[in-house]
């Protein structure tokens, strides 16, 4: 009764499929080991935590990936139809319990482990004396506001917003706290000091993203969201917009410069002078 046709050519297909799966697994492993395309180096401590957690996850998922793909390749090859009769197996409770528990412990454990880096970013607020900078997203630019020597941000009034007229944020000129506020399209921060960003948006949702900081935060209209970081490496880093905000989304970009404290002070003074 067994029809020959069903088995014809099955060895060729089985072998090719198994070989493909092995090659695919090998290429995937290689690209991760070779790090041809990789993260830029992190410049924050929690960034390094995140990278470690990434590696941990990569190892665990990598093992599961290799075992599953090679396992699939093996059963495809080993049990290809050759006229044998299939074994009657309906299940194996012990094995099922084992791999259920194993994955539960592994995956949920991984999730619990990931908490630390997240907590560092989000559960604690910025230390007192952190450098405060307000970040405003608007179609399709970033604006950064420093509170100036008085350490206070001036009042904003949406009615006064006039980007072409030089007041992109709608700074209220009648508020004394706003007199010394500095609004610039690029941001500089001192190295090794905690910086607190107050992120807001004036129109649609944007997202503040600096790859090297390992930090991303949506700028949500109607909300003022605080995040903080302390950069340990000087240099210039790009800030692309990471949430679809309209036709200019792809070119909504600014720069973050991390500089030594002295340079930073000078930069601030220069900007303030240029702004007068």
């Amino acid at each position: 009764m067994r029809r020959k046709k069903a088995c014809a050519g099955s060895t060729t297909v089985a072998v090719s499929l198994a070989i493909f799966l092995v090659i695919f697994t090998a290429i995937t492993l290689y690209t991760f080991f070779a790090k041809t395309w990789w993260f830029p180096d992190p410049i924050t401590t929690f960034g390094r935590d995140i990278d470690q957690q990434f590696l941990r996850t990569l190892v665990i998922t990598g093992i599961v990936f290799v075992l599953s793909q090679l396992g699939l390749a093996w059963v495809i090859f080993r049990y290809r139809g050759r006229g044998q009769r299939a074994q009657h197996i309906e299940g194996n409770l012990t094995m099922e319990v084992v791999w259920t528990l194993a994955t539960l412990v592994l995956f949920v454990g991984l999730g619990v482990y990931a908490e630390r880096a997240w907590a560092e970013v989000h559960f604690r607020s910025a230390v007192p004396g952190a450098v405060q900078i307000e970040v405003t997203g608007q179609q399709f630019v970033w604006n950064f506001r420093y509170p100036g020597p008085d350490g206070k941000f001036g009042r904003l009034d949406p009615k006064l917003v006039n980007a072409s007229g030089g007041n992109p944020l709608g700074l209220d000129p009648t508020d004394p706290a706003g007199k010394d506020d500095l609004v610039v399209p690029v941001v500089a921060v001192p190295v090794n000091r905690e910086v607190e960003l107050l992120i807001r948006s004036q129109d649609v949702t944007h997202s503040f993203f600096v790859r090297e900081l390992r930090l991303k935060q949506d700028a949500v209209p109607g909300l003022l969201i605080r995040i903080h970081f302390s950069a340990t490496q000087t240099g210039q880093y790009e800030i692309p917009c990471a949430e679809l905000c309209g036709l200019g989304h792809y070119r909504m970009r600014s720069f973050l410069t991390v500089m030594p404290q002295a340079d930073y002070d000078k930069w601030l003074a220069d900007q303030a002078a240029a702004n007068q």
Partner: peptide
């Protein structure tokens, strides 16, 4: 994961028609 392993278990010992 249960689904994946059980799929492999289904293939195991079979007579696969491609």
């Amino acid at each position: 994961a249960i689904k994946t392993f059980n799929w492999l278990g289904t293939l195991w010992g079979g007579q696969i028609r491609f």
